[in-house]
Amino acid sequence: METTELTLELPSDIRSIEQAVDYVMERCSACCRHGHRLHFNFRVGLTEALANAMLYGNGHDPHKRVRVEVRVAGEEITARVTDEGDGFDPSGVPDPTHPGNLLKPCGRGIYLMRSLMDEVEFNDRGNSVTLVLRLDEGGGEPLAGGASA
């Protein structure tokens, strides 16, 4: 089984997210099956993880960096996004789809990650999230992530 690994170090600059995600997507597309789950589920998951790391993890601090480690093994993509912040408790994030939270402007990033990826796991400190997406599951359906919507 062919394995590809990729590591990026990014400044906490939200303008760098789009370019970084495009680069990762390009590398992943070159080494695994092109599919909707790669181009939609994985793009959304990685984008949200990077935005959370820069905005909330590193608190916009341009001196703090975000590390992105991507591993493609067969039909499985794993991405670990780590910031230099103090971390947080992901279980404390309210459900943005609860009627009382629908009008809140924030809080949908982690929910989208959990909805669209097969696995989402935070480390104990809460400053690193690991996303896993299996490209061969769900028959290419975009909603076949690990969490219920």
Partner: peptide
């Protein structure tokens, strides 16, 4: 092509 969660948040606001 794409709207992220921050974009959704701005629409809500």
């Amino acid at each position: 092509g794409y709207i992220d969660s921050s974009g959704l948040g701005v629409l809500v606001s």
